[in-house]
Design a protein around this nucleic acid. Structure first.
Length: 472
DNA sequence: TGAAATGTTGGGGCG
DNA sequence: ACGCCCCAACATTTC
């Protein structure tokens, strides 16, 4: 008699380096690749159309990949416990195998499922799972640099450690599958084709060239110096372990110390991803509140009209507006830009960082609770290894430094296309003649700044000081 | 993975 | 020749 197992897919939409799939195959003669459309996510206010579309496209790609191996994707809709119960009734499956997921919801969900069903967690969305990198006394790290050192003290991952995709997957042929939902069409030229093959192609291309210039170019918003892999890592279309192995390979293959150092900086960014996954797993309260209690009472201004201007790129600060329009249009934002707009929302507009966190989750294709929350708490100065409360980005000088030719601004703000370099980062200084010449009338074509940075900065320093004093 | 304020130094203009 | 001031450039401190 043959044994059937369930490979429950959550955020591991891939066949390579998949420990849960491997375990399901080892324990069963036939495997059911299952994705559950969970109403918790289908209705969540923290999931937007762009990420949903990417997920659905990824499910279609995974189904196609499965079919080349004699299998197919089974999609069910409903609460996970009910969907699993129904499938076990139909198949008499002996076990459920899934990759571990660390969000508070996922852990609650899996805890309940494990109490009722034979759920086995195998593999991790992190490179090194939470608990694998701890201080001498067994406590988790809350500062990045010592975490990173301890993380690197473990053995490097090699290609040999990355599991190959199975050649054949046997799946019962008589199972019903819901169709993958269709989604509203995304803007033309959506920059992230979904799927494992695209992820592998990008990883390879990045490892051939830009990884060796990464440290020098990654902050330039006008260049494509980053890996652009975040959406694929978010849904596990790329294994984080495979990415780390590629980083180590590049470090070994580097022709000189400079190139090696550049590749290592990219590995450090992957370690940041692990760091925030670990923080969320060890301190789940960060999903709801500031990591440090002294920053839970900041006297926010929370002006709704200013929040609206920020969201839609109408603040009057070109670098902010370019970045916010890039996000709304493409579902992605350059990491340097994420830090700049976060600093502006929190420390210029003095709006609760959680408002920004939610907007990012609604817009980002790569939106991930751990990394997004970690990034926002870092920017707000409320979290682990946080930016100090007095670190406030100047949106003008940041633009001048990291978009020196203004190509990023002009790309996303067409009304500033003809403004000269002299005024591009501070268009409010244009005399009327320059406005006419550049066909950019301030106040009509492009807004005046909604806030004075210098004044706002001082106000925020006072507000944070008040919060700290009140708590002391 | 800042920025602004403040301090220091040194060159040049000038009386 | 000298002191004084201004200010740019750089360093340090502070937020």
């Amino acid at each position: 008699m043959s044994t059937i197992t369930i490979w429950w897919i959550r955020r591991d939409l891939r066949l390579h380096d998949n420990a849960a799939l491997r375990a399901a195959q080892e324990r069963g003669d036939a495997v059911v690749p299952l994705f559950i459309l969970d109403p918790f996510f289908e209705q969540s206010d923290y999931v937007g159309v762009k990420r949903r579309a990417f997920l659905y496209a990824g499910l279609r790609a995974l189904d196609a990949d499965l079919r080349t191996r004699g299998s197919r994707l089974i999609v069910r809709r409903g609460h996970p416990a009910e969907a699993l119960r129904a499938l076990i009734d139909e198949t008499n499956a002996a076990g459920i195998f899934a990759e571990e997921d660390y969000s508070p919801y996922a852990r609650r969900r899996d805890g309940r499922i494990a109490a009722e069903f034979p759920l086995h967690l195998a593999g991790s969305s992190a490179i090194r799972p939470p608990g694998a990198v701890l201080k001498q006394d067994g406590a988790p790290y809350v500062v990045y640099t010592p975490f990173m050192r301890a993380w690197k003290a473990h053995a490097p991952l090699r290609d040999a450690d990355v599991l190959p995709a199975p050649a054949v997957i046997r799946t019962p042929s008589d199972l019903h599958s819901e169709p993958v939902p269709s989604t509203p069409a995304l803007p033309p030229g959506a920059p992230f084709p979904a799927g494992e093959a695209e992820a592998q192609r990008r990883l390879w291309a990045f490892g051939e060239a830009n990884i060796y210039r990464y440290d020098e170019q990654r902050n330039r918003m006008d260049l494509d110096g980053t890996s652009q892999l975040s959406p694929y890592l978010r849904f596990g279309m790329l294994s984080a372990r495979a990415a780390a192995a590629a980083a180590w390979n590049a470090m070994q293959a580097a022709e000189n110390q400079t190139a090696r150092g550049n590749a290592e900086v990219w590995l450090n960014e992957l370690i940041w991803r692990d760091f925030y996954l670990h923080i969320l797993a060890h301190f789940p309260h960060v999903a709801r509140a500031s990591f440090y209690p002294q920053y839970r009472e900041i006297p926010w201004r929370n002006d709704a009209a200013e929040f609206e201007a920020w969201r839609h790129g109408r603040t009057g600060y070109p670098v902010i507006d370019a970045a916010m329009r890039q996000l709304a249009h493409s579902g992605w934002m350059h990491n340097r830009a994420r830090m700049i707009v976060a600093s502006f929302l929190v420390k210029d507009l003095l709006i609760n960082w959680q408002w920004g966190e939610r907007w990012f989750m609604q817009q980002l294709v790569d939106g991930d609770l751990a990394s997004n929350n970690g990034g926002w708490q870092w920017s707000a100065g409320t979290g682990t290894d946080a930016a100090p409360y007095f670190r406030i980005f100047n949106p003008i000088t940041q633009g001048q430094k990291f978009d020196p030719d203004g190509r990023y601004i002009r790309r996303w703000i067409p009304e500033l296309a003809h403004v000269s370099d002299k005024y591009l980062h501070e268009p409010w200084k244009m005399p009327v003649g320059a406005q006419r010449q550049s066909r950019c009338q301030l106040g009509s074509d492009y807004p005046y700044p909604i806030i004075d940075h210098k004044v706002a900065r001082q106000h925020t320093l006072d507000a944070y000081k008040t919060a700290r004093a009140r708590h002391a």
